[in-house]
Amino acid sequence: MQSLSHVNQQGDACMVDITQKPVTQRMASAQARITMRPQTLAMISQGNLPKGDVFAAARLAGIQAAKQCANLIPLCHPLLLSKVDIDFELDQANQAVLIRSLCKLAGQTGVEMEALTAVSVAALTLFDMCKAVDPAMCIGDIRVIEKQGGKSGHWQEDQSV
């Protein structure tokens, strides 16, 4: 079994030393899902919510969250992100909004945590913007769906999941 990288020999939490790691192009993409009543999804798609453009607010919140990841997750390295994208897809069949993030940089460590933080905060912002009309929304299915770069190379989730 592989040892944990964020634990030292004494068993204490520690930040991984990446000083000697080479700089490589890195990318990570994550996804979240927020399910809701059909009426709420219709209001979002028609732009009829009292708080305005929920996607604009959630997009900006997700971008800001990715940039703040190291301040939120104790052992994350502060990273110089070169790109953060947040996209939304209305999933009418499942009464949901899918949120996807893409984070990129040239660096010594991956950007999975930034991508996950971006979709999480974007989902929370969507919830905040819609909670007055649908307090029973459910945020879930938050996961990394693809990553590239570093010694592990390219990984993509099994599409059958």
Score class of each variant (00 low, 15 high):
Pro78Asn: 06
Leu116Ala: 03
Glu89Gln: 15
Met113Phe: 15
Asp87Asn: 10
Lys67Glu: 05
Cys76Tyr: 06
Met129Val: 12
Ile86Arg: 03
Gln64Leu: 14
Leu98Pro: 12
Ala106Trp: 10
Ile99Cys: 02
Ile99Tyr: 09
Leu124Tyr: 10
Met129Tyr: 09
Asp85Trp: 09
Gln95Val: 02
Phe88Trp: 10
Phe88Thr: 00
Ala115His: 11
Gln64Cys: 11
Gln95Glu: 12
Lys104Met: 14
Asn71Leu: 13
Pro78Gln: 07
Leu81Ser: 12
Glu89Trp: 13
Cys103His: 07
Ile99Arg: 13
Val97Phe: 06
Ala115Gly: 02
Asn71Glu: 15
Ala106Glu: 15
Thr125Lys: 11
Pro74Ser: 04
Ser101Gln: 08
Thr125Ala: 09
Asp85Gln: 12
Glu112His: 02
Ala61Glu: 03
Ala118Gln: 03
Asp87Val: 02
Cys103Asn: 06
Leu126Gly: 06
Ala122Phe: 00
Gln92Phe: 13
Ala65Arg: 02
Leu72Asp: 10
Pro74Asp: 00
Leu98Glu: 09
Gly107Lys: 07
Leu75Val: 11
Ile73Trp: 02
Ser101Pro: 05
Leu72Asn: 01
Met113Val: 15
Val119Arg: 01
Ala123Trp: 15
Ala65Gly: 07
Met113Arg: 13
Phe127Met: 09
Val84Arg: 12
Cys103Arg: 05
Leu79Pro: 03
Ser101Glu: 11
Lys104Asn: 09
Val121Lys: 12
Ile73Arg: 02
Leu80Ala: 15
Ala58Leu: 08
Ile86Met: 06
Ala93Glu: 14
Leu98Ser: 11
Cys103Ala: 10
Ser120Pro: 08
Leu126Lys: 06
Pro74Phe: 00
Cys103Tyr: 03
Ala61Ile: 00
Leu124Ile: 13
Ala58Tyr: 09
Asp91Lys: 14
Phe127Ser: 06
Lys83Asn: 12
Arg59Asn: 10
Ala122His: 02
Met113Asp: 14
Gly62Arg: 05
Cys69Glu: 14
Val111Ala: 08
Asn94Asp: 07
Glu89Phe: 15
Ala115Trp: 14
Phe127Asn: 06
Asn94Arg: 15
Leu116Thr: 04
